[in-house]
Simulated assay, not measured.
Amino acid sequence: MKKLGKLEKIIGVFIIATIIGGGAAYFVGQKGAEAEEEKPLSAEEVAELSIDTDIITTNLASPGNYGIVQFNILLSDKNTKAEAEKRTAEVRAAVIATVAGFKKEELIGENGITMLEEQLAARLAEVFEKGTVERVLVTEFKMQ
């Protein structure tokens, strides 16, 4: 019976080592996959997946003020870019509605621009059926 006890211990240690090794291999594999997914896009890839809006002038929420804006929108893939190019009226409407919702004071400074980019990205995400909006950048910005 003692030999069977030692054999059971050896098998138990082997099973535990296998489970730990398998878990470690899975964890390392997941980290490697995440690192590949987060690889920054090249300039060519960004150009292929981006669209620029027209320069748009719209009133702001504060009376007597208006903004002149243009955005660069990075999309998740070529299909989403093709959809965005077909939905220019909806993209333009989303830009106008988003910008018009801000008061002049809210758009002053870096925080205001960041907030504008984030809100426009969220609104555009509702427009597209395929893919996602990866980021929105303000490329032209004037307020009066």
Rank of each mutant, 00 (worst) to 15 (best):
K2R: 14
K2G: 10
K3L: 15
G5M: 14
G5D: 12
K6P: 00
L7H: 07
E8G: 15
K9I: 07
K9L: 11
K9C: 06
I11Q: 12
I11T: 12
I11E: 13
V13S: 15
F14K: 13
I16R: 08
A17N: 04
G21D: 01
G22A: 07
G22M: 11
G22C: 06
G22V: 06
G22T: 09
G23M: 03
A24W: 14
F27P: 02
V28S: 11
G29Y: 08
G29I: 01
Q30A: 10
E37S: 11
E38Q: 14
E38N: 15
P40G: 02
S42L: 00
A47P: 05
E48V: 05
L49K: 11
I51H: 00
D54E: 14
I56V: 12
T57A: 09
T58H: 08
N59F: 02
P63H: 01
N65T: 12
G67F: 05
V69T: 15
V69G: 06
Q70T: 08
Q70L: 02
L74V: 13
L74H: 06
L75V: 08
S76A: 08
K81I: 03
K81E: 03
A82Y: 07
A82S: 14
K86I: 06
K86G: 15
K86W: 04
V91M: 04
R92S: 13
V99C: 02
G101C: 02
K103Y: 03
K103C: 00
K104D: 04
E105Q: 15
E105T: 14
M115F: 10
L116M: 04
E118R: 15
L120H: 03
A121T: 04
A121D: 04
E126S: 10
V127K: 00
G131Q: 04
T132M: 08
E134F: 05
R135D: 10
V136N: 07
L137M: 11
L137P: 01
V138L: 03
F141Y: 11
M143H: 01
M143L: 14
